[in-house]
Each structure stands twice: as C-alpha cells, then as structure tokens.
Write a protein that binds this DNA or RNA. Sequence first.
DNA 1: AATGGCTTTTTCGAATTTGGAAAACAGTGA
DNA 2: TCACTGTTTTCCAAATTCGAAAAAGCCATT
Lengths: 295, 295
Amino acid sequence: MDRLDALRVFCAVVEHSSFSRAATELNISVAKTSKLVQSLEQALNTSLLRRNTRRITLTEAGERYYHDVVPLLEEMANIDARVERMTTTITGTLRMTMPLDFGRRLIMPLIPEFKLTYPDLELDIELSDRHADLVAEGFDLGLRVADLKDSSLIAKPLGTYRMKCAASPEYLARHPAINTPEDLEAHPCLTYSLSAQPSNWTLIRGEAEARVRVQSALQLNNGDLLAQAACQHLGVLYQPDFILSTYLDSGALTPILTDWQDRMVHAWLVYPARKYLPMKVQAMLGFLKTRLSDQ
Amino acid sequence: MDRLDALRVFCAVVEHSSFSRAATELNISVAKTSKLVQSLEQALNTSLLRRNTRRITLTEAGERYYHDVVPLLEEMANIDARVERMTTTITGTLRMTMPLDFGRRLIMPLIPEFKLTYPDLELDIELSDRHADLVAEGFDLGLRVADLKDSSLIAKPLGTYRMKCAASPEYLARHPAINTPEDLEAHPCLTYSLSAQPSNWTLIRGEAEARVRVQSALQLNNGDLLAQAACQHLGVLYQPDFILSTYLDSGALTPILTDWQDRMVHAWLVYPARKYLPMKVQAMLGFLKTRLSDQ
DNA sequence: AATGGCTTTTTCGAATTTGGAAAACAGTGA
DNA sequence: TCACTGTTTTCCAAATTCGAAAAAGCCATT
C-alpha cells in the first residue's frame, strides 16, 4: 500500500468522520479506504481511530498523527506543485555548452531574440572548445560541431557547414601553388586539435575523395585563433565556413582548392537522454532549429 | 511503488551520487533502486537526475525537489517517532468512564497507587451512571456493572458482586415481615433504572430461582442515592454489596432474605475493539485486574 | 423482538505489481 | 581492444492489490 495514499486517506476519513464519505470524496472504493487505514495502523503498530459501524473518533495517537500529518501533506503538495510548475513553464536556468567560435558567430546573435521570447529563462552558457561531459557537469544542452562519439546522449542535427581551405594572400604569394589536395602535404598546416583526426584533411570532387595527411605547423583547440594565425601567414587553414567567412570577406584570407567540394561538417544539439525533456530545453531546441537548420 | 520509499531512495541516490551505493546502503537491490527513482520521475513527469552509467547529477528540478524533500522526510520520521513513543510508553491521557458508585467505592481508593506507578499518565475519568458510547465520546476504557449489550466492544470480566436485599430497621419494624421473595411484591421497592429490567429482581436458593416483579416506589440511576432513600425508610433496596456494605456495617440498613443466595452481578472492563491496544490501556487493565479480580 | 437503513470489515478470485537475477548496455582506463 | 564498473532493461514467479459482494455490526423505528 502506498504510504502517502494511506496518509491522504486517513486524513480524509478524519475530516469526513466516515470511511464511506471519504471514499466517495477520493473516488476510491470503501474497501480500499478501510484497508489503507488499516495498513497505516499496522505500519505504526497503533490504532488511530476508534470505530464501530456508526461512529469514528480519533484516538490520542491518531489525534496527534492527524495534527502532524496534515501540514506534511500540504507541504508535499506544495513541493509537487513547485516541480510541476518547473516542468510546465519555461523558467529557471538553462545550462548550455558550445564551442567558442560557433557560439560567438552563430548563437550569440540570436540570443537577444531568444531572451525576448523567454524572458523568465536564465541562460548559463559555457563557451569552450572541449567536449564537456554534460552529465558530470550538469549541462542541459550541448552544441557540438564535430563527429559525435557513441554516447548515451540524444543528438539532433542542427545544421551542416562546409570545410574550406584557405591561406593569406601573402602566404600564397610566397609559397608553391596548391592545385591538388596532395600539394597540401608540402605546406605547413594549421590543425584543429578537437577534430577526430586533426592532421587528416578530406576533400571531395565528384566521386573522388582525397584524404591528405598534412604537416601540422600549429595545432590549437580554437578555430578563430587558427584563422588569425593564418592571417599572419603561418600556414594553410582548414576550417568551417562560419569561421572563415569574415576573413574571406575582408580579404585577409584567400580560398584555395576551390574546385574541390569540401567536406561537410555537422553541428549537433546534444542532451542527456531523458524521457522527460524539460520545457526550457525544448524551447531552446525549437528556437535554434528554426533559426539555424537547413541553411 | 510506495511513494515515500521512492523519496527516500531518491535522496539516498543523491547523497551517494550512485544507484548502486544507495542500494547497498538501503539494503535493497539495484534494480529496485532504479525502478523507484524512475517511478518517481514518472509520477512527477520530470527527470530529476541526469545520468549515464558513470555519473549522476541533479537536474534543476531534481535539485529543488531534493532540497525540499529532505526536510519533509525528516519531519515524517519525527512524526512516526512521536507516535512510536506514544505507543511504547505509558504517557498521555487515559479517558475512562465508570458508574459513579463503583468508581467512588472501588476505583478511587486505588488511584493514588496507580498514579504512583504511572506518574506520566494523566487520567480523565468520567463518573456517570449511564452507558456512554465509548467510540462516539472517545473513551479508551469503560467500566460496566451490568449485563452487556451485544457490541463490538471487547469486554474483560473484572469481578463479581452479589446483589443483596436490604431495608432500614425502622422500615422493617413498621411493615409486614419479608420471608420469601414473593413477599416483596407487597412492598414499595427502590429500583435502579439502568438495570435491564429494573423491576424484575432475581433471587436464588439452591436450585430454586425466584423472579419477582416488584412495585417501584422510586427509580433512580444512582445506587448510592437509592441506598440513602432506603435509609430514609422509603422502601426495600436491591443493590450490589459494594454499595450496601457501608450501610450494613453502620447498621443504617438491615439485610433481608438472607437465606436466599442473591444473584451475582458482573463488573466488566470494556474497550473499543482494537488490534493495537495502547500501553496506557493495558496498564490500567492489568492494574485493575490484579486489584479487583477474584475477590 | 424484528425490521430496515446505514456503515465498516472480510472474503475471494482476477488482475496488476513487485522484485531480483541476469543480460544488455555505456563509459572509462589500461 | 579488453576488462571493469555501474545503470537499465528484461523476464517471470511470487506477492500484492482491487473491487464486488457478502458478512457483520449498530441504531432507530416499528
């Protein structure tokens, strides 16, 4: 017998001074009412109610118990209501983690609109170029730009981005021309340490797929800083377009191997597998999908 | 699944950051631990714990819930402990009801010793010559000097008393002699209204049983006052010896029909049928039995 | 005394739930 | 890759639960 049910039933019986009225009130059978109270008395090894078929009164222990239990049940109801409110409204704090550059370039511009839509939801965003352990560090939502490791996390695709090769005009002027992927092997390259295989660059043209093992002149876990290194003529860069675009637009970097279709990279939303996805996570999920998907 | 158990298990899991450690701690199987937490989450329609096979952290809702539930569980434990204490120690208040004269003559003299033995138990005794409804009026214990009605009450025999006939010497001097029970029919009699049949007196001699239907000159629901009426020569009295003895000893009344064995009357302890008899009731039951039984 | 209305408790068999062992699954470190 | 730890799922026998109906009890009225 569920103990909390038993408490509720006991209180109802006391308040109605009747098993049958309590039963109708609680919409359960009279038999169950009787049994629940009995199970409670058994658990306490005490009789709480003096009863015959016509009347019911509280024993001294029952009186005390009822007196104590009523506020407890109220508090329990409050606690449940509080949780209920937390799950049905979009409030509280949403803890997210995402790569620094992706956050800076693609997410941050959207935040004002998001905050406008959900003013009661606080955001706690960690920008970090590492694979945070969502469970261990208590993140509700993570944003990954990489191939996902097998994991118990749920992943939803957010968008696809194209990897591009580029270098500074000055660098290109001073070094041998790059006409095929294989030419890259002779160049100092700027590699991204969080890639599964930082020094293996993949380029595609039609059916052809070229996997090049490049020399890493500098390896960092931050794409933007890699791009800045490229601007300082340190070598050839291989990064997603959302990082390169500003440098290409400004002319600081020049694309190379443009006749090659560069590999696509996927962005993912990941969150701890759960049956009961909080509204706040759903809100962010929906918001980001409408803004960033199929671009 | 028992909700309170689920709460306790949830808290243990939080405190140990582990299902398996919580399970060992609580001495239940790991499977049960997992299921209980899941049932709680289902009931709340919320996930309380982010978990993979290596780590566990609280969600925002879980954090709040844990924070709220811990004091609630403590309070619940306190409440249970309080009831436990009430049932295992002899404290509180014992509410009794008993006939006025029986109480005055037989019970009150014993009370000082009882109070000495159980100083923490308060007594609330109603002296009243009526059949109080123990259940309706919340008595823990009743004392009855009469034949019992069918009832759900538990009855324990406390002692037997002998009904005696008596009248004042002056009354006897002025009225016809009473040699047989049938002679009573010609006398004004003092009847006790709470008897099943106040005007039917039964007297026994050997195998013979005489049932006499007497004339009631005065009917009261208090034996002592009836005896005082007899002292004032109002008629013949038929009362238990514990009421008559002082009047007989002082000579205020004279026994009559002494060659007849008078009917026995039983005293009973009655209490609402209960599986879990409170210690305080047991204490009084035992005390009175050793003092009043088989006299 | 008997009746009838009302209430609680018990009974009983069907249906559901429970609980633990073991398998499956996931993450980590070697 | 394997070994190891920890969580979840699966499976199924055993226990429990449930409600309808019967039984039992109380009381007022006849």
